[in-house]
Every structure is written in structure tokens, then in C-alpha cells.
Design a protein around this nucleic acid. Structure first.
Length: 495
RNA sequence: GGACAGGUGGCCGAGUGGUUGAAGGCGCACGCCUGGAAAGUGUGUAACGGUGAAAGCCGUUCGAGGGUUCGAAUCCCUCCCUGUCCGCCA
């Protein structure tokens, strides 16, 4: 979420930074001006409205005093005077609501601005390598097999049965591979907690729309998510409740309003909700704002519950940075990814990931970003897996990020580097969306916090990397030294 | 899921239509007192927005959103959350 005041004070800087995102190359200035026009309308309205409100408040106090003095004549005169303001105020408040919700939506659909040191570019090829962060030499293996060949040959990885039960992009892991997933997760958590001071968290993996809004999945990327689905009859109940509520909003005097007025009220409110949360199905949005559809989303990443842990809070500066790590399943609908990585465990609807999240002051976030990337890389180093790091270009960066490092691990079976972690500094972008601020020792609020998230690492893809890098000629797979304690001392899978 | 009871400032807690943005207490900050500290004592202690060079002024906010009223923490409606008991269950 962008700060309208910042846009007001620095329209050109905002527009030129936004224009670095390829999708806004030509429209950034228009976007800024659209926002500023709406802002101007809103502020002009507020000046008028607040003048009326002030006059009403003053008169109301005088009425109270007059009544206390039993001066009914004066009280009546004042009441008559203020009565004329009522319509103007109610009207103004309604306009204010509309304008503010429109404003919020316009701000909410814009991506974060890239940091100054992020390279320009429109696609993956424009990402910039970071030679200093590179580690190891890509291993060349004769007749290297891909991870799914290894896993299926061992009889420990079963896509067909998973398809029978759940469809494409799911997998059963069995025996030592099931255990290996657990071992990898435990090893990562132990490293992050013991060496890097992260606090281990076991968070909810079903979350509300507001949480997804805060981290940026909504309103624009709802198609990538799995949602729980309320029953139709519940929606019908909801509609009835809504119409009842609407009638109470009209003072219980529904009869004195036309049916069209009431329905219009319901529809407007629902449309507001739909636009804010990017919902496709209007019927799913009768309830405005907080208690939206009775649905929950399966988290696409633990970033959502970990970051939202501090939503709507004012944190003490002294408790920052806050560092969380969690080992959770993640669920992605991946609607747009059909046909890509269809074989194997690279792109699944359900996968495990160890996530890292930091909440920091603005001063700390750049250093924290490097530190977080160090923590993620540390896992690969301990596993002795060759990898490289790239800084994502403006066109490849996610919606909420101002700067992102991707870690790409070497996969001999694919003869390619593949993404295994993405570490992003979101600056104050998410903090504004979830209203998380911090205050100094003097108790003064200093502004929004900064948030960062990174995979530390994707567990499924780490397993892929281990299988492909540690495969042996006889079809077995060596277990990396650091994982052996987590595997009951076992050194090889498949012998 | 059902039945009750609640949701007020950093925390506890008073407040059922009119100078209550909110008594009182705790906590915190600063001062006095003290050799130093404790105790005691005085003062101050919300967020967001508008306006303004600033001081300030104004508006909004007592779980959320609506409504009634000249005026709502107080009345009405819907929802959310918490607690207790019951039901169900890993």
C-alpha cells in the first residue's frame, strides 16, 4: 500500500519509480494523477464536511447547556439551526466513505516501488548475478537422472497414486523420502533458530482475506490461491441476513424506502467489498469489509501468517527486529502455470517450505535482507549444494517487494539452476496494508515497520536438489552429512 | 455448533443520551525530596486524518460496520472476537 502523502509530496519521484515496473512503463504518470485527483476531491470534501461537523458539535454542546438551564426556547432555536446541517453531514459522510474506499482500492492494486539499486529489466534474463554470493561448482554427473526418476525407481515417490487421490501436481512420499522431508525441515529450523536467532513458530495455515490483503496476495492474485468453499445454503442465509441488516441501516423503516434503494445499498456495499478484495463473485461479498465471505484460504506461504502476526499493532522499537521461522505446507493453485514443470516435484499444488520473516525498523531492513539471504544460503552451504544468487530485475520482482534476491540451486538432472529461495525486502509496503507501526522509547510513533520474507528453503526443491546432486551410479542416494543425525544415522537411501 | 457473559487508553477499571477523549488506579517520563535509593510528592502521558511556516485549531475513533438523535462509549441492527458451560472431535 502506498502512502498518498508521499505521492502528494513527490508525484514525479513516485511516477518515475513506478514506471520502472514494466507493466506501468507507460501509465505511471496517469496512475499518479488519477490518485492525486481523487485525493484532491477527498480533501476538499473533508474541509467542507468538517466545518459542518464542527458547527454541529458546538451547537449540540450549547443545546446541552441550554437544557441544563431549562432554557427551552434557546434550545429549540439551536436545534432548528442545526437541523439544517444534518443532511449535508450525512451526505458528506457517505461521500467520504465512497471516496476513501475508492482511494484505498486504487492504492491497493499498485505494486511496490523498486529500490534504487534494483536493476531495470522486463524478464528473467535481465536479473543480475551476484558473484560474491555464488557457492560451489555445478556438479557434472554422467547419465544424471532427474529426481522423479530416482524417486520412482526407489519406489519412494508416487505421482500416479497421488493423481488418483488428489489430481495432478500432488505426490506421495514414502519411507526414507517421507522421513527425509521431515529431516530437511528439522535441520533448517534448527539452523535458523540456533545460528540466526529466529523464533520457531507453528502458525495457522488457513487465513482470512484481510491477512492475504496485508501481504499482497489480495486483491489481485486470488486466482493463485485455494479457498475453502462455504455451502450454497450458507450464502442464501447470508443474503437474507444482509437484507435484514440493510433494513436496519435504514432505521427499520424499509417500507418508507423503495425496494430499489435498499437493493442499491446492498449492491454498493458488496461492490465496495469486491473491489477491495478483488473477488470475482459478487454474491460472495454481501458483508462489507471485515466479515467477508465465510471462507478461509490455504496459505500459499507461511509468510502470510508470520507477517500478519504483528498486524494492527504498534511495536516497541526495542523489540525489533522480530525474526520468525516456520515449517509449513504451502498451497498454490498455480492457475497460470499449466504446462510448466509438469513432471516431478518442482511445481506442486502442495509443498513444504521453511519460511523466514523479519519485522524491522526502516534503518535495519537493508542489513536484515543481507542477513536473511545469508541464513538461507547457509542451509545450502551445509548441504554442500552449489548455487548462485541473482538480484531480480524490476520486471521479475513480486508485487510486494522493493528488492528481491533469488537463490538458484544447481540440479544435475536438469542440467540447470533452479530457484530454491526468494528473499525480499518489502519495505513499509506490507506494514501499511496491515497497519503495523513502531514507537520509540519516548512512546512516540515513528511510522510503519519494514517487513522481509524469504524461503529458508523450499523443502521439496531441496529434496530434489539432494536427490539429483547426491545420486550414485547404483541408483541409491547418499545422505548429506548434516542430515544423517536427523535420519537416525543412516548414510544412504536405497541400498 | 448451542446457551449465557463480556469486548473502554500501554495495562486494570468506572461510566446507560449532553462541556466524558473518557473518573480512579497501575505502568512509563520528567521534576521535587534524598548522601544515593526506596517511600512520598508534583506535572505530563492515545491513534489517525484535515488545516497551518509553526504554535495551534478542527474532525474521527470506547471490537467492526451501519442506523436513530440537535447530540451516542451509552439506544437499535448486523457481524467479529474473547471467556464459561454444553455438544462434537484430533
Amino acid at each position: 500500500m502506498h502512502d498518498i502523502k508521499a505521492i502528494r509530496d513527490g508525484r514525479d519521484a513516485f511516477a518515475s519509480a513506478l514506471a520502472r515496473r514494466p507493466a506501468y512503463r507507460d501509465s505511471a504518470v496517469a496512475e499518479a494523477d488519477k490518485l492525486l485527483a481523487k485525493d484532491k476531491t477527498l480533501r476538499e470534501l473533508l474541509v467542507r464536511l468538517q466545518t459542518d461537523q464542527a458547527r454541529r458539535n458546538e451547537a449540540s454542546k450549547l443545546i446541552g447547556q441550554a437544557k441544563a438551564k431549562k432554557d427551552e426556547t434557546q434550545a429549540a432555536a439551536l436545534m432548528a439551526e442545526v437541523a439544517g446541517l444534518k443532511d449535508a453531514i450525512q451526505n458528506g459522510e457517505a461521500q467520504q466513505r465512497t471516496l476513501e474506499s475508492e482511494m484505498r482500492y486504487l492504492l491497493a492494486v499498485l505494486p511496490n516501488l523498486p529500490a534504487a539499486d534494483v536493476p531495470d529489466g522486463s524478464e528473467e534474463g535481465d536479473n543480475v548475478a551476484m558473484p560474491k554470493r555464488a557457492f560451489g561448482t555445478p556438479r557434472c554427473i554422467n547419465n544424471a537422472k532427474q529426481h522423479f526418476e530416482i524417486g520412482e525407481t526407489l519406489g519412494l515417490m508416487d505421482f500416479e497414486r497421488a493423481a488418483k487421490v488428489s489430481g495432478a501436481r500432488f505426490v506421495y512420499l514414502k519411507g526414507d523420502l517421507a522421513k527425509l522431508e521431515r529431516a530437511i525441515g528439522a535441520f533448517m529450523l534448527d539452523t535458523h533458530t540456533e545460528k540466526f536467532g529466529y523464533t520457531e513458530v507453528s502458525p495457522p495455515v488457513l487465513v482470512r482475506d484481510e491477512a492475504l490483503f496485508a501481504t499482497g496476495q489480495l486483491p489481485k492474485f486470488g486466482d493463485d490461491l485455494f479457498f475453502t468453499d462455504p455451502r450454497t445454503s450458507e450464502w442464501e442465509d447470508e443474503v437474507r441476513r444482509w437484507i435484514r441488516n440493510a433494513s436496519s441501516s435504514f432505521g427499520g423503516k424499509v417500507d418508507s424506502y423503495t425496494k430499489e434503494q435498499v437493493l442499491n445499498y446492498v449492491r454498493t456495499t458488496a461492490e465496495n467489498a469486491a473491489s477491495i478484495f478483488g473477488l470475482q463473485n459478487l454474491e460472495a461479498t454481501f458483508d462489507w469489509q471485515v466479515r467477508l465471505p465465510r471462507r478461509l484460504a490455504l496459505v500459499p506461504t507461511a509468510e502470510v501468517p508470520l507477517t500478519n502476526y504483528v498486524s494492527e499493532e504498534i511495536l516497541a522499537e526495542a523489540e525489533l527486529p522480530i525474526r520468525f521461522t516456520a515449517f509449513t505446507p504451502c498451497f498454490r493453485a498455480e492457475a497460470g502455470a499449466a504446462g510448466k514443470d509438469t513432471r516431478g516435484m518442482i511445481r506442486m499444488h502442495q509443498f513444504s517450505k521453511v519460511e523466514l520473516v523479519s519485522i524491522t525498523t526502516p534503518d535495519q531492513s537493508n542489513a536484515e535482507h543481507e542477513r536473511m539471504t545469508d541464513a538461507a544460503q547457509e542451509i545450502l552451504k551445509k548441504l554442500d549444494l552449489a548455487h548462485r544468487v541473482v538480484t531480480l530485475c524490476t520486471g521479475d520482482m513480486g508485487f510486494g517487494a522493493r528488492k528481491t534476491y533469488d537463490i538458484e540451486v544447481w540440479l544435475p538432472g536438469q542440467n540447470a539452476f533452479r530457484e530454491i529461495s526468494s528473499c525480499s525486502n518489502c519495505g513499509d509496503f506490507q506494514a501499511r496494508r496491515m497497519n503495523t507501526r513502531f514507537k520509540g522509547a519516548d512512546g512516540k510513533v515513528k511510522g510503519p515497520v519494514h517487513t522481509l520474507n524469504g524461503s529458508g528453503l523450499a523443502v521439496g526443491r531441496t529434496m530434489v536438489a539432494i536427490l539429483e546432486n547426491y545420486q550414485q551410479a547404483d541408483g541409491s542416494v547418499a545422505i548429506p552429512d548434516v542430515l544423517q543425525p536427523y535420519m537416525g544415522g543412516k548414510r544412504v537411501i536405497g541400498t
